[in-house]
Simulated assay, not measured.
Amino acid sequence: MSDNYILLRHPHTGKETKGYYGFSWDSFRTLGFVWFKRGAPSGGMEYIISPAAILIVFGLFFGVPALSELLDGTEVPLGGLMISGHALIAMLGLVGLLLQNTLISFSCNRRYTRRLLDEGYEIVPAINEKEARIALNLPGGPDGRR
Score class of each variant (00 low, 15 high):
C108L: 06
G43F: 09
E75S: 14
G79S: 05
G39H: 09
C108S: 15
L99N: 05
S68M: 12
D72F: 06
Y47Q: 04
F58N: 08
T74Y: 12
L67D: 13
G63M: 10
V95H: 02
S42G: 11
G39E: 05
D72Q: 15
I54M: 06
G96P: 01
Y47I: 07
P77M: 14
G73P: 01
Y47S: 05
F61R: 02
S68Y: 02
A52K: 11
P65L: 00
F106R: 10
G44N: 04
L103C: 09
A40W: 01
L67C: 15
P41D: 00
G44T: 04
I83D: 01
A90S: 08
I89V: 14
M45T: 13
G44K: 03
I48Q: 04
L97S: 09
G79W: 10
L81P: 01
E75R: 13
M82P: 03
G43K: 15
I83A: 02
G44H: 03
Q100F: 11
H86M: 06
L103K: 07
L88H: 06
G80A: 14
V76F: 15
E75G: 10
G39F: 06
S84Q: 06
V57D: 00
L55Q: 06
I49V: 10
L94S: 09
P77D: 06
V57H: 01
I56M: 13
L81F: 12
P65I: 02
F106Q: 05
G80H: 07
L103A: 11
G79V: 11
T74G: 05
A40Y: 08
G63W: 11
F62W: 13
F62M: 09
A66R: 09
V95N: 01
L81K: 12
A53N: 06
L71Q: 03
G96D: 04
I49Q: 04
D72S: 14
I83V: 15
I104D: 13
G44M: 02
A87N: 07
